[in-house]
Design a protein around this nucleic acid. Sequence first.
RNA 1: GGGUAGGUGGCAGAGUGGCUAUGCACGGGACUGCAGAUCCCGACUAUUGGGGUUCGAAUCCCCACCUACCCUCCA
Length: 449
Amino acid sequence: MEIRDTLSSSLKEIETREGKRLYMFVCGPTVQDDPHMGHARTYIFYDVLARYLRYRGIRLFYLMNITDIEDHIITKMKETGRSWEDITATYSSRFFDVMEKLKIRSVNYYAFATDFIEEIISQIKRLMKKGYAYETSDGVYYRARKFKEYGRLSKQNLDQLMAGARVEVNEEKEDPLDFALWKKKKEREPSWQSPWGEGRPGWHIEDTAITESIFGPNYDIHGGAKDLIFPHHESEIAQMEAISRKRPMVKYWIHTGHLNVDDIKMSKSLKNFVTVEEALKNYWPEAIRIMMLSMKYNAPVNFEEKAAADAQGTAERIAILQHRVDDSPELKTERAVEAVMKIFAPLESDMNTPETMREIVSFVKDSLAKKGLTIQEKGEIRYVLSEVEKVLGIVHTPPLPERSLNVLLELRNELRKKGDFTSADRIRESLNSRGIKIEDTAEGSYLWW
RNA sequence: GGGUAGGUGGCAGAGUGGCUAUGCACGGGACUGCAGAUCCCGACUAUUGGGGUUCGAAUCCCCACCUACCCUCCA
C-alpha cells in the first residue's frame, strides 16, 4: 500500500522489515487536561491505520509516548496547587479511559517520558560529545544550525523563518533556533538528577530517547498531527540523526490534519474546546469514528452538529443491519470476500477512508433494501460487517437487553394490540428518556441503544 | 515575508483524461395506531476565473484570484 510521506512529500510504498514486521511511533498527548476531539481525530486515524496494517498480515508494533513532564504541566501545578503526581495520574487515566471508549486498543505500549530519564541523559551526553549541544546557566541546548538538514521536514528556510515574530528571552542561547534538551530546575519544579544538576528533559528529546530504547535509531513510521512537524519532529530528526549518523531516522512521516469546531480552529483562547466526553454524551463512539474517517486523514475535519448527526445516522443504519443479521452465523463465501475487498481497496492508496466509507454506506444500503434475506445472505452480510469492524471499529453492537426491559417491550406490544396507545406510548417515552430506542418493524419490535 | 494543502451541486465531500459517486437536505409514495426508523420513486445535476495541451479535462500544464493551516505551546 501507498502512503504520503511528509519528508519527501510523495507517495511511498510501505515496505516491511524481516518477518513482515513494522515499527510505528505516534506522538501521544501531554497529560495535563481532558482529552479533546482533536486527540480523537488523530488517534482514531492511527488506530485504523494500525488495524489495517495488521489486517494485511503485517506484524506491527505500535508505540505511543505519554508526555508526563512539560511546561504545561508545571503551569497547571501553579494554577491549581496540585502535585505533579496527582495531575499526571489523573489525566493519563482519563486519556486511557477515552481511548478505550473510542475503541482505540491498537497501541502495544505506552511509554511515559519520565520512565526514560536515563536514556534522555545518555542522548544529551552523546550530543554534547559530538558538539551538537552546549550548557548555559538554565539548561542544555541543541545547536540547530549545526545539523545541516534542519528545516528539511517542514520545508522551512531557516533565515526566512527568522522573519517570524519569534520572541526570545534567552540571551545565553547561541542562536534563537536552538532548542532545549535539558531545563535546569527552578523553584518547586519536579526534577531529576543529571550531570548538569537537577532538572527536567526538553520536549523533543523525550521521544527520541523512547524510540531509540525500544526501536533503535531507525524505525518505520512516525505519526502525529500536522502541528508537530515544526519544530517537534524537525528537532527529533536533528537529535537522533546527529547521534546515530544512521539515516533516515524514519522511513515514513505521516501527519494528520486538525479538527475545527464550526469551521474555527479549536483553541483554548477561543474557549471552543470540545472534550471527547462531551461529544460522547450525544453521539456513539462509532459515530465519532465515522465522522473522522469520512474525511481524508491529512485534511481538516470540521466538527459541527450536522456532520456529527450525519455520522450518527450512518452508525445507526449499520447497527440496524447488524441487528437484522445477527441470528445467523458468519459465512465467508467468495461473494462476501469480494465485497470486503471492494470496501478496503481504497485504503491501499494513501488510506482513503472517505472512499471506504462510501463503499460501506452503499453496501449497507443495498443490504437493507433486500427483503426476506436468506440464512446464507445474512451470514455473508455478517461476515462483511465483522471484517469492517475489525479494521474500522464502526459497527455498534448494543448490549443484550436485560430481562426487565424485554418484559416492558412485551407489555407495550400487548397494550398496542388492545388499542391502549396512551399507556404504550408512556412506556416508549420512558425508555427513550433512558436512551433506549424501540424499533417497530414488520417482523416485530426490538430494543437498541 | 517563507512554507504546506486546497478551491467540485443548497450543504458536506469522493473521483486524477472519456461512462458525470455518495450522504444530508428537498418533492412524492410504502409501512405504522402514531412517532421514529427502514424501504421505493423523483427532481435538481456542480467542477474558482482565464489561457493552453488533447479527438476529448473536474482530472495534465501556465497565469490570476481566493481559502485554510504552519513558521509560538498545541493531537
